[in-house]
Write a protein that binds this DNA or RNA. Structure first.
Lengths: 202, 202
DNA sequence: GTCTATACGCCGATAGAC
DNA sequence: GTCTATCGGCGTATAGAC
């Protein structure tokens, strides 16, 4: 590894440490209760000025997290659409993904479900306009065309379906439901699907 | 009206103005983006010190709002339980109430559904432990006993049902669904009920 | 690219006159 | 119970040496 490459590597690592620390703290305490002091301590940096070499300000850290998470979500949704044909299968894939994330990366899901972005990320797209969301709505529309899903406002159906899924995950993440995500997966899928399916398959 | 009564009346009015202003601002911008300056301007008070005669600090305003809203919700749930017998009817009553509130008092519902209390009200009960929530869970448990509702973890069923309802209301309040609450009421009720009902009644 | 030191603004909160 | 004035502190952000 030549000198230049190693330096960018190190730079990327420090940046990632800051992002990881911020993610954990934002997920745990919220954006406004997290100071740059907290972040520098958590990231193992000597003082706050170091942060400003990687991010313009505190807000930019949150914006980077937001972008990373939704980009990766968008990629995952693409894969899921590629690997499955029926709308029900694709939605099931998304639910599986969200449950797996809740298990493996709870901070990511806490950030995703428990944080109110618009209070500090006014310039970012609202969740309903992100690529991932739009693609999921398309899945639902397709399901309506093929007759799997009841013909209603697609955004309403989106709200029903992910109301069930996300609210269950919220209860798990907040400790109100004490079993592991896997325990609730099949029941949650069924309830979510029942809320929008045409023929109720019990 | 005698002098003393009039004074307490005036005091109560000023206090209510502060609470109303705070409710609107918290609902719109969030707790941390709202300063006491904002509140005093919105409430038509000359300066911030006035606020401290009615509330110990900014946090106490939020705590009072929280208590007021959940108390009144609790009373409403009691009434609903008194007026209806079947679990399905009682749940329907709660849904009707929440939709009506979304129509008539959107700020109250924004505060209820869009604000993360635990970031600034660490000492208050979490929502899942409020009287109103506990009573609703009881309704669900009764419905399971009588066979109306599938036999699953009552808190999970609560999560399913109000996942559908609250998420729909969230989309309405945030403008992602553009019709009035009434337009979505019957569909939402059906979807929510389908997510927990034993016999799916289409 | 990391450190020390420090500036600066905002906001919550208080003291005390009236 | 309302006003004027002001404090103290925190937290963001910058300047500049190394």
């Amino acid at each position: 590894m030549d000198q230049e490459k190693q330096e960018t590597q190190i730079k990327a690592e420090t940046q990632d440490e800051i992002l990881l620390a911020a993610l954990q703290l934002f997920a745990e305490k919220g954006y406004f209760n997290t100071s740059l002091i907290d972040i520098k301590d958590h990231a193992g940096i000597k003082n706050t000025s170091g942060i400003y070499h990687y991010f313009k300000n505190k807000n930019a850290i949150a914006a980077a997290l937001y972008a990373n998470i939704f980009d990766s979500l968008n990629v995952s949704v693409d894969e899921i659409r590629r690997r499955n044909n029926k709308s029900s299968e694709q939605l099931r894939g998304v639910v599986d993904l969200l449950f797996k994330l809740t298990q493996d990366a709870p901070d990511v899901m806490k950030f995703l479900l428990l944080v109110k972005y618009d209070e500090f990320l006014a310039d970012e797209k609202p969740i309903m306009e992100t690529s991932a969301t739009i693609k999921i709505v398309k899945i639902i529309q397709t399901g309506m065309n093929t007759g799997e899903i009841r013909a209603i406002d697609p955004y309403l159906a989106y709200g029903f379906f992910f109301g069930v899924v996300n609210n269950t995950l919220r209860l798990i993440l907040s400790g109100a439901l004490d079993k592991s995500p896997d325990f609730y997966l099949s029941q949650t899928w069924l309830a979510a699907w029942n809320s929008i399916a045409k023929k109720t398959n019990v």
